[in-house]
Amino acid sequence: SGELYCSLLNPRNVRFESINMKNVLHWSAPEGTGNGVLYRVKYSVYGVGKWIRKPECRNINRTWCDLSSETSDYEEQYYASVKAFLNGMFSDWVETTRFNPLTDTKIDPPMVSVSSTDKSISIILTAPEKWKRSPEEESKSLLQVYPGLQYNVSVLNKKTKKRWFFSISNHTLVVPWLEPETAYCVSAQIHITTPILDSGFSKEYCIATSKDKTEA
């Protein structure tokens, strides 16, 4: 690391934080430095010769830089690097480890919508979308990125406290032959077998089955 008298200590913990392939470079300020430190960012595609500067992250004082656009091709892998400047002093370039958007991203839980009849509940699951540059850009579901994507669905009978888990590949699930006038709570998780990726479970969506129609 740099000597104190003519260069600045290095930025620390330089890494990508990625959710649904929104890939943001994060770092911590050099130790012992207060405000006033500025940063520059560059990135490179693994296997390609050159580093490319990110103009929007030149001389910034924040400690993150959104590189989603530059790293959106998930068939490639990337490095990024940060350099700190303060009062004419500067640090070394500090690099990330190799970043693979396909395996190193985190996945949000699926969206869950639930409806019910007197003896069944219907569950519709929607996988999150891959990050996109602008709202106008065509959306791409993570299902297209990970063809092996499955859902683990948890259904809790609030009366009996019995919980079932379903592991399904398609995005709809009908749980039939339930008890009328009973509350059920549903939550779901995305489960990708390879590469090994799991989202957290979504929050619970509760719904009650209606009155038994045959009794009416």
């Binding site: 693994y46 296997g47 390609v48 010769g49 480890t97 190799r98």
Partner: peptide
Amino acid sequence: QARDPIRTLSILSY
């Protein structure tokens, strides 16, 4: 990967 300092060449992708 930390043992591979060469960023500019890929065996499989180049």
